[in-house]
Amino acid sequence: MSFDAAPVTVQVRDRNLQILGVVDDFTSLTITPRFNAVGAFVLNISADSPKADLLLPGNGLIIRRGSGVLMSGPIREPNWQRSDSDGGTGSLTVNGVDDLTLLAGATCWPNPTSAPGSQTNSVYKISGVAAETAMRALVNLNIGPGAQAARKISNLTLAADGGHGAAVTKQVNQFDKLLDVLQDIAKTAGLGFRIVQVGSNLQFQVYEPADLSASAKFSFGLGNLTDASYSVTAPTCTKAVVVAGGSSSPRVVSVTTRADPNFPGPWIEQFVDLTSVDTASTDLTAQMTQAANEALTSGAAQGNLTVTPIDTPRLQFGRDYTVGDQVSCQVRDDFFTDVVREVNITFDAQGGYVAKAVIGSSDSTNNQDALARMYQYFARIVTRLRRVETRKPS
C-alpha cells in the first residue's frame, strides 16, 4: 500500500478476558463484521509458532486496527493440518465468532428474573418505552447484570441508555431467541447493536448508525472501487394480516398494507400471529401496529449491492466508516446510498489486505427509507429501459 494505513493487531485473551499475548506472526487473517448479526474470523498460523499454544478453545481474540476494535470474540474451532511438503509441523487454522454470539445462544424468558419453575407468564411484555431501553432491558434481565444467577454472564455490562428509537409496545413470545427479538426491534427503529470488549469486560451497546453518504463515497472514477454487482429481489409481504385473541378473548383482525410501486401485482398477504394477546388490553392497537410494521419491514423488497472497495488516504474502513453506517456507491450512472451490512476483510503477513463490502439488504437499518431511495433509483432505470423499448425508428 502506498500510504500509511493503521496496522492490524491481534491480541489473545483468556476466558476471564485477560490479555495473554499478541499474535504477530500469522500468515493470514480474515474477519467478517456484520451489522446486527454475529460476525466471524479465521486466523492461519504456522503450527510451530510459539503463539500457537495460545489459540485454544476458551480463549478469544481481540482484533484491533489502530486504536479501534474491529472485532472481539471467542475461539471456536482450531484445526491442525500437515502435508509431506510442509517442511515443518504443519499449519493451524483458528475459527471464531464475535461476542454477539452471546445473544444468539440465549432465549427470552417470560419471567426473566424468576427460577425455571416460576415461569408463570406466557409472554414478556414491553410497554411504550424507547427501542433502546427495551433492548437493554431484554439483555439485562436475561443474561446481564439483572439476570438470575444461573443465567447471568458475569463479565457482561451495558453501556448507558441513550433512549434512542421510537417507543415500542409488543409482547415477546416465551423463549424466543434473544438475538432475533433484538434484530426485529432494531430493524424497525433504525438502530444498531453490538457486544465488544471494553477493558476487562464485555459491553452491550446500542447506537444510531452514522449517515456518511456525503463523505464516504465509492466509485470507479474515484479510484477506490475495483468491482461492483447489484441485484433486486421481490417483496415477500405487502399486506400484514394481524390476528389477536381468539381463545380466551374475542378475535380482532387488522390489515396493514405497504404497496411497492416497482412490483405491481397481487397483494402478498402474511399472517401475523398475536393470538396470545388479550384483545381487552389497553395497548392492543399499539401492539398490532408494531407487529404489522415488523412483518412488512422484514418482507419488503430487497436490494443487494456487493462492492470491493480500496482503502485510500481519505477513506479507510474502521477509521472513516464501519458496518451499519450509510455510504454512497456509484451504480451505473448514479450514486446509491444504503447501509454497510457486512465487510469481508483478509489481511496477509505483509500487512496488505483486501476488503469486500455488502451494502444494503433486508437487514439494513432504517430499512424502509433505504428501500425508498433504492427504488427511486431502480425506477429511473426501468423508465429509461421502457423509453428505449417504445422508441419508434425514424
Rank of each mutant, 00 (worst) to 15 (best):
D4E: 14
F26A: 14
T32W: 07
R34I: 06
F35H: 09
G39I: 04
I45S: 09
S49P: 01
L55C: 11
L56C: 10
P57C: 08
N59T: 00
N59R: 04
I63G: 01
G73L: 10
G73Y: 04
I75Q: 01
R82L: 13
S83A: 13
S83Y: 03
S85T: 14
G87E: 14
N95D: 04
D98R: 02
P110K: 03
S118I: 07
T120M: 13
N121W: 11
I126C: 04
L141M: 08
G146F: 05
S154H: 09
A159G: 12
A167E: 12
N173S: 15
K177L: 14
K177Y: 09
Q183A: 11
T188N: 14
G190V: 05
L191E: 06
L191D: 07
F193R: 11
Q197A: 11
N201T: 14
Q203K: 12
Q203T: 11
F204H: 06
F204W: 06
V206A: 09
A210G: 05
K217W: 02
F218L: 09
F220S: 09
T226Y: 01
A228M: 08
A228K: 03
A234F: 00
V243N: 02
V253M: 07
V255R: 13
R258C: 08
A259H: 08
D260G: 03
F263V: 06
A286H: 07
M288H: 03
M288G: 04
E294K: 02
S298K: 15
G299L: 10
L305Y: 08
T322M: 10
V343Y: 02
V354Q: 10
A355R: 10
S362T: 12
D369M: 14
A370I: 05
R373L: 14
I381F: 04
I381V: 15
R391A: 11
